[in-house]
Design a protein around this nucleic acid. Sequence first.
DNA 1: AAATACTCTTGACCCAGATCAAGGAATTAC
DNA 2: GTAATTCCTTGATCTGGGTCAAGAGTATTT
Lengths: 194, 194
Amino acid sequence: MYELFRKKIEEIISVTDEEFEFCKTMFVPKKLRKRQFIIQEGDVCKYTIFVEKGLLRSFSVDEKGVDHILQFAFEGWWMGDIYSFLTSEPTVYNMEALENSELLLINHPSWEILLDKIPSFERYFRILIQNNLIATQRRLMGTLTKTAEEKYRDLIENYPGCLQRVPQHMIASYLGITPETLSRIRSQKNHKKS
Amino acid sequence: MYELFRKKIEEIISVTDEEFEFCKTMFVPKKLRKRQFIIQEGDVCKYTIFVEKGLLRSFSVDEKGVDHILQFAFEGWWMGDIYSFLTSEPTVYNMEALENSELLLINHPSWEILLDKIPSFERYFRILIQNNLIATQRRLMGTLTKTAEEKYRDLIENYPGCLQRVPQHMIASYLGITPETLSRIRSQKNHKKS
DNA sequence: AAATACTCTTGACCCAGATCAAGGAATTAC
DNA sequence: GTAATTCCTTGATCTGGGTCAAGAGTATTT
C-alpha cells in the first residue's frame, strides 16, 4: 500500500526506514468509491490527501450550478485546500473520486507533529506547494493568453492519460470552456487528420 | 532601510537580533528607477526580490507583442520566478519597476545558506509560497468564472490602492481584458453612480 | 514651449465561444 | 433486458468582449 507513497517522497527528500515508519503512523488510509465525496463545500478541509490509487477532482459550483474544476489528482498526487486546512475556515471546494480510489489522509495536528519530528518534511511540503504554484501560474497565464483550442492541445500534451480517464465535460470545465465547444474542437481536429 | 523587511518576516516567524543581522548580510540592496528592468525574458532569474519601497510588475509578452501581467509587487511583497530561480532555466517573465523602487535581492547560493543557517526560514518561505498559491488559485478560478466587470470589481475591492499607482492598461492586462473594455466598464459604473 | 511619447476614451464592427435545443450513444440501476 | 441517467454531438442563434481606428488629454524629453 505504501510503495508509491514512499517513492514520491523520496523523489524529493530522503527518509530513513524509521522516519518512514513514523510518517506512516501519521496517515490514515481511506478507500473511496467512484462518485463518493471526501470533502464538500462548507466543510472544513480537515485532511491533506495523498492519492495511492484512483483519481480525484476538486471543483467549485457557481450560482448557476455550473462546475468549475480546480484540479485533478491522479496516483502519486496530493490534493487538499491548504487555505481551509490551515485556517479551519470552511472550504469553497468539493472533492470527489472519479474512480474507486485509495487515499492516505493526514489531519492538521498530525501534520504539525510530522513537520516537527522530521524537519525535512518542511522542505518536502515547501517543494510540493512550490510545484503546485508554478503549475497554477502557468495555467493562469494560459487562460489569459490562449484560445480554447490551444488550451486543449496543451492539456492533452501535458497529461495524455487524462482523456481516457476523465469525462470530456469535466475536461471542458477544467479548461474553462463549455462541453459543446470542446466537442466541436475535437471533431474539427479529427476531420483535419483524415 | 530594513524596518519593513524585518516587520514582514516577523509577521510569520520570529527571529533574534543576531539571526536578523545574519539574514541582512545575505541580501543585496538595489535601487531601481521607474521603467527600469531587473529581469528580462530569457535571463535566468538569479534573484528573489523583496520590495522595500516602490512597485514592480512581472509580465510575459506574447507573439503579438501584447503584455500579460502575472503579478504586481508593492512594498512588503516578494517577487521572483521560483521556477527559474531554482532550476536556473531562463525565465519567460520580465520584471520592471513601475515607480522608483528600493529592493533587497537574494541569490540562490545565499538563499540556501540562509535556509541552512536559520531553519525557520524554510517555514517562512513555505508560508509565503503557500499564500501565493492560495491567491493564484483564487485568481485562476476567478478568470474561469467571472465576467470582466466582476473581475475588475474584485480587484479594486481587494487592492484599492492599485488604481492610483498602476496605469489602467496594466490593470486591464492583469485582468486579462483589453484597455478598451476596461475603459468602458469604468465609464458605465460612473454613469450609474450619478 | 514644442515635440514626442504615453495613456485613456469613444465609436463602429466583428468573432470566438456561449447558450438553447434536440437527438443519439453509452453506462448504470432495477 | 429495459428504463433511467449520464454523456457526447451537432445545429441555430446570440453576445461579451475583442479589434481597428481616431482623437484628446498628460507626461517626458530636448
